[in-house]
């Protein structure tokens, strides 16, 4: 290969993040990432279940927070990863960015689902109902719909490059709309605030509760990155399988 200095900026970017290099780099990163995420989660679980006190107001239900809040955080983190990767894909036309956005969606959706279900399980003892149309719950539900729509679009369009472009446009429109939706839901909620419902403005967090929360949040975040790499590697292989099949078909046609 010619020296790096003779390459244009965009070529250098290509070389920096080409799929082959990504495969080599991610292969080396995966083992440590698994260890770090499982380590954080293991220690976090110990603190969450055994080594932290019950809340003076919420009692033992506060332990639900250690799963619920990190999931909710990853629900939003996942969408940001998806939106940023989509922006990079549209601007720089980089194939890895498309794969990154595609791979982030199911992980984000899974954590959004987890946030919703654990929210319902927290709501029942706290609010006396499985589901309340609370501003936060409602916007997370809408976020879940956005994830589902994004994944549905990927599966609906057969040709991968076309699907990638369309999905990237959808993810970006979603990213512009998320704050608007969030604001409107908050606004709607203050308008309809039911007086009888116990309002939970997020427990003021004591330091002994912050530690398990931080450990679980780190663990989940590292797990997210690990799974993202695994899924991106699978996507690169899928692309390669497709290329090989096309080449095979072309070779057969020549015979």
């Amino acid at each position: 290969m010619s020296p790096m200095t003779s390459l244009s900026a965009s070529q250098r970017l290509q070389a920096f993040a080409n799929p082959a290099r990504f495969m080599a780099l991610s292969a080396r990163l995966l083992a440590p990432l698994w260890v770090v995420s499982l380590g954080f989660l293991g220690v976090g679980l110990y603190y969450a279940l055994f080594a932290s006190p019950p809340d003076y107001q919420q009692g033992e239900t506060v332990r639900i927070m250690y799963v619920h809040v990190p999931s909710a955080w990853l629900a939003m983190f996942g969408y940001s990863v998806m939106a940023m990767a989509s922006a990079v894909a549209l601007i720089f036309r980089h194939p890895l960015a498309d794969l990154c956005a595609k791979s982030a969606a199911p992980i984000g959706a899974a954590f959004t689902f987890l946030a919703l279900v654990t929210g319902a399980l927290w709501g029942k003892p706290m609010w006396g109902a499985w589901w309340v149309w609370d501003a936060r719950l409602t916007s997370v539900l809408i976020l879940f719909f956005l994830y589902l729509g994004y994944m549905a679009l990927w599966t609906a369009i057969e040709e991968p490059t076309r699907a990638a472009r369309a999905a990237a446009v959808l993810a970006l429109v979603g990213a512009i709309n998320v704050p608007i939706i969030r604001y409107s839901v908050d606004w709607w909620n203050t308008l309809h605030q039911p007086a009888s419902v116990f309002r939970m403005d997020g427990p003021t967090i004591a330091p002994e509760m912050l530690l398990p929360l931080a450990l679980m949040a780190f663990g989940f975040t590292f797990l997210f990155v690990t799974l993202l790499l695994v899924r991106m590697r699978a996507e690169i292989l899928r692309h390669r399988v497709r290329m090989l099949r096309l080449a095979q078909a072309a070779a057969r046609a020549e015979d």
């Binding site: 679980l45 279940l49 019950p54 009692g59 033992e60 239900t61 332990r63 639900i64 799963v67 619920h68 999931s71 199911p106 992980i107 899974a110 954590f111 689902f113 987890l114 279900v117 654990t118 399980l121 927290w122 029942k124 003892p125 989940f220 797990l223 799974l227 695994v230 899924r231 590697r233 699978a234 292989l237």
Partner: peptide, 30 residues
């Protein structure tokens, strides 16, 4: 769990199961 076992334990069960299912599916696909 101070009477809240029916809520706390399902949360932890799901918190393990959902990521586990995702990991198994991702690795199998790879």
């Amino acid at each position: 769990m101070g009477g809240y076992a029916a809520y706390v334990w399902p949360v932890y069960a799901l918190g393990l199961l959902v990521p586990l299912a995702l990991a198994v599916q991702s690795l199998a696909d790879y």
